[in-house]
Design a protein around this nucleic acid. Structure first.
Lengths: 313, 313
DNA sequence: GCTGGCGCTTGCATGGACGCAAGTGTGACT
DNA sequence: AGTCACACTTGCGTCCATGCAAGCGCCAGC
């Protein structure tokens, strides 16, 4: 900045990515994490860029907050448009790949991977050993347009127009308790009476989670004896006899220590399982192969997912 | 390419510039020159990129020709869109610069710089010593959108919508010969009779040059004794008495060895002199300052440019 | 058929960008 | 007030990308 401001054309497009990352994060550290570089590198690169163009791009506020100036915002906006371009380019180049080799990033929720998906990925690996599968467990919805993942298993029908998905199955939920807690009796057939048991619930402000919202409505909060935002912890707690938990059937049914509080799944909690990819990728050989294998595997897993009892068969 | 094709997202936006440059040039050497890097760097970077994405971007044809594949063309297209974005960004950032310092790239034709412009740039330098003026002599029309120059002096009214220009003066042309060749008589006042003298002309296929096309029509080709594509060479040849040349008055009139073949400028060759900048830059302090200084200076130079004879005043 | 020119390809030495780690400053919570 | 956490800033050593230069292949022109 102090150096003479020889306004010079943008001669390193990567600087734009840096500016975008800083603008998005509001901090050097966050930006550096995104770009997988060291803080200090981000610091020096930004400094060098500002020197070169002779314009301050971020105000350094106390507390390490980097706030974009007008010029910084303008630059970040350009970078964002460029990012959209390169994302599309990535997808298109990958979309032409007809080889059954390379990398495939799959994302799903923790529980789904635990009970259903891993077995099927093993099958897939057997059929296509040349493809390296990367399973990203993340309950956040990763951005397929940005290629944070190639394929996602989601509990919602995809809404974005440029995504392409297929419904794999319905997913049923119901209430479970340990056999000791429920005294080993047969599951009730009538409406669930939660008040009769201690209940395991979600953390207070768990918004956006279907089960959490349903419970807030149907379970008296005095009945709740334990709260956690982790569904796995709920499962473990239920097995330990702490209380009754509302779980997807594919988690609850395979646990020998657990039994259903009521026989039928709770229809209000029924969801759909979708497998989703970006439209640009759906003709890629390895994506198509994965869709095929999982599609077939899910047929076998459907009774588990829909909560059909073995005796129902 | 031989390495396993781990399709990986575009993680270096500069690679796009390389692909674009190679696609534009059809060769590594040309691309490297554009990017001001070494051939070998271009070679290795392209190789690394193709390895990383697992896609061949260029076919290596014999003779060192690099022809883009489909994927290469797709990537170059993206790069071109990005270039437009960054160009606009450059201009906008520079456009906000209110300091009278920095760099200013000016382009004009050789003859204009020689007779008219340099003097005025000297004046400008005196008034604004903090601004480094780079005069790019190039008879090609440089691309102001791409900031190949900030300001251009052109002999045509600018057509592109995003350029901003001002007419500085009319520019007159007429025919000149050395005093010895024309026998020192007073210039004729009637229509020019070229056939009476040897004539200096343009190279055969000089298309797009007004004077060349006019001469092809009005001067019998047998009369032409010397051809060159350089107007400076024409001037020198005329001074040497080789023949009659058609020159802009600002070139011919100041030469004591030359005199006009006819008194009045040839109206069909009349052009306009414009000073042009990009609309995004016209409020930049140093651009505005330059426009002002040149605008004023041109008022003084107008008699020379329009071909008014001293005696006419 | 040889020579010169041009451009790609490859070995080698260097310099600058990078990661690491220590230092500093700021805010929040006790 | 004191401690902790977090993030920016800066010095230092390393390593990789780069430029340079030599080698090779292709083409054209004498």
């Amino acid at each position: 900045m102090q150096a003479p401001a020889y306004a010079v054309p943008m001669d390193d497009w990567n600087d734009l990515r840096l500016v975008l990352a800083i603008a998005r994060n509001g901090s050097l550290t966050g930006a550096a994490k995104d770009l997988e570089i060291n803080h200090s590198t981000a610091f020096r690169r930004l400094g060098a860029l500002e020197d070169a163009i002779g314009v301050r791009l971020f105000e350094r506020l106390p507390g390490g907050v980097y706030a974009p100036t007008q010029a910084g915002e303008r630059m970040a906006a350009t970078a964002e448009r460029i990012e959209t371009e390169t994302d599309a380019l990535d997808r298109e180049i990958v979309g032409r790949d007809t080889s059954l080799t390379g990398r495939l990033r799959v994302t799903s929720s923790e529980t789904l991977a635990y009970r259903v998906l891993t077995k099927q990925i093993a099958k897939f690996r057997e059929l296509h050993p040349g493809i390296l599968v990367e399973l990203v467990i993340d309950n956040r919805v990763l951005n397929l347009s940005r290629r944070e993942a190639d394929i996602a298993l989601r509990i919602n029908r995809p809404r974005e127009g440029d995504l392409y998905g297929r419904k794999l199955s319905d997913v049923a939920w119901t209430a479970y308790g340990s056999r000791s807690l429920l005294a080993g009796g047969a599951p009730a057939t009538g409406p669930t009476d939660f008040a009769a048991y201690p209940v395991i619930g979600w953390e207070e402000n768990a918004s956006g989670i279907n089960a959490a919202e349903w419970m807030a409505e149907h379970v008296p909060s005095q009945a709740i004896v334990y709260r956690t935002n982790s569904i796995v912890s709920q499962l473990v707690a239920a097995k330990a006899g702490i209380g009754v938990a509302v779980l997807p059937c594919y988690l609850g049914d395979p646990e020998p220590d657990l039994m259903r509080l009521v026989r039928e799944p709770i229809s209000a909690l029924g969801r759909e399982l979708w497998i989703v990819t970006h439209a640009d990728l759906r003709r890629t050989a390895r994506v198509r192969a994965f869709l095929d294998v999982i599609g077939e595997g899910m047929t076998a897993a459907r009774p588990l997912l829909t909560g059909s009892l073995p005796s129902d068969g």
